[in-house]
Design a protein around this nucleic acid. Structure first.
Lengths: 219, 219
DNA sequence: CCAACAATGTACGGGGCGGTTAATTATGTC
DNA sequence: GACATAATTAACCGCCCCGTACATTGTTGG
């Protein structure tokens, strides 16, 4: 958060400088936080504008309407998150170590990007209606499967993994455990206590996630 | 849906009959569908009233305001769902069979109650703020853990399960797989295709959920 | 049968909020 | 340096939608 604001300053804007990219990215950053916090219909354009370094008019100038802004935020959220995933190099690890590493990474990654999780939750509430209009996102996520395919192929070749393991189904499992851990934290902790979501509890759950996946794939 | 309407009739209400319970439950039923569909801020009181057999005035008469109605819907959703869980008798099954059965039941149960899932999603978006005000729900859910505790104890005693297995953590896993399968269906299927969510795909995922849990707990 | 109260219907107000209009200032171009 | 165009501002509009005031009709108890 707070990134991409550039050198724009709000106070003392007497004779302003033009900075389209800065204004644009500033709006998106603020809007992402607001949408993540309040949902599509819950977010207020006036509120977003107020927290921006610019005015409400600019939102409509660049994004047309509320939904246009939301779509942009959605794409940006996916882009920002997926970009962090590329740093991971799993090729030099043994298949089992690589898979364990991937699970740990996904778990931590989701955990440290709650706003992304919330945006995806909101998008699911809307039946994925806005995601549908963006083919950019679909292509981005294919890369996530690619990594799993390679690990599975190597694991199968080494006789470590069961041959019938499907990468997509594996991805479903890993996502489920990592996503739920963040998305349902409020209700789960309200009902069953917050211990599992404090640091040591999270370490346990992360370990369980790894162990579940590993036990599942192992021959 | 459509339950609890009773004998109230909308058309031809010339000389109306008083039916507080019928009116009340009818409002809640309609509101649950609307909130599940559109969220708290997305749902429209006028829309709810229109789909009701009564008038908007009654909503405020019985529930005070929009949030009061939402709280009632939330409690009712939990009550309705948990009530279906009691039918399951696991005591006469071997611990491993009982656990597998519980996973299957939870998976199917979530799958066939999408409106409940959506309400919980919405509540999580609101940080569980409304759940907090209801201790009824917390006590109701303790029963869900109770079943797992008994299964674990028996499994451990029989030497089938690992001794360090924690019932609450087990519940977390089972919930994660079952919940995610419904909650993230729109985005997941939009990105990776809908095959996993068609009947045969669901059978596979359900089997994987069972297998993951079983392999995890087994000694 | 008649209060007194509970339950319901109708109509309306007020403000929040998405979106717009018109003017004003910067920036690039010939 | 003048002109076209992009970027930005401030004020404003209209309607959607939550909530309410008031009237009206059942219900119940003495």
């Amino acid at each position: 958060m707070g990134e991409g604001i550039g050198s724009v300053e709000k106070a003392g804007r007497v004779g302003w400088k033009q900075d389209p990219e800065g204004v644009r990215s500033n709006i998106v950053a603020v809007a992402m936080a607001e949408f993540a916090q309040n949902g599509l219909s819950g977010a207020r354009i006036d509120e977003i504008a107020a927290k921006t370094l610019t005015s409400k008019r600019m939102i409509y100038y660049y994004f047309g309407d509320k939904e246009g802004l939301y779509r942009t935020v959605l794409e940006e959220a996916y882009r920002k998150v997926r970009s962090g995933e590329q740093e991971l190099d799993l090729e030099h690890l043994e298949p089992d170590a690589a898979l364990a590493r991937l699970v740990e990474f996904t778990f931590d990654h989701h955990s440290s990007n709650p706003d992304f999780i919330r945006i995806v939750m909101i998008e699911n509430i809307h039946h994925g209606a806005y995601l549908e209009q963006s083919d950019l996102i679909a292509t981005m996520n294919e890369g996530a499967i690619r990594k799993l395919e390679q690990i599975c192929a190597r694991g199968r070749a080494a006789g470590l993994f069961r041959p019938e393991i499907e990468p997509l189904e594996l991805h479903w499992m890993i996502s489920a455990l990592s996503f739920f851990n963040v998305s349902n934290r409020p209700t789960f902790s309200r009902i069953f206590g917050a211990a599992l979501f404090r640091p040591d509890g999270q370490k346990i759950l992360r370990g369980h996630a790894v162990e579940m996946v590993m036990r599942f794939v192992m021959a």
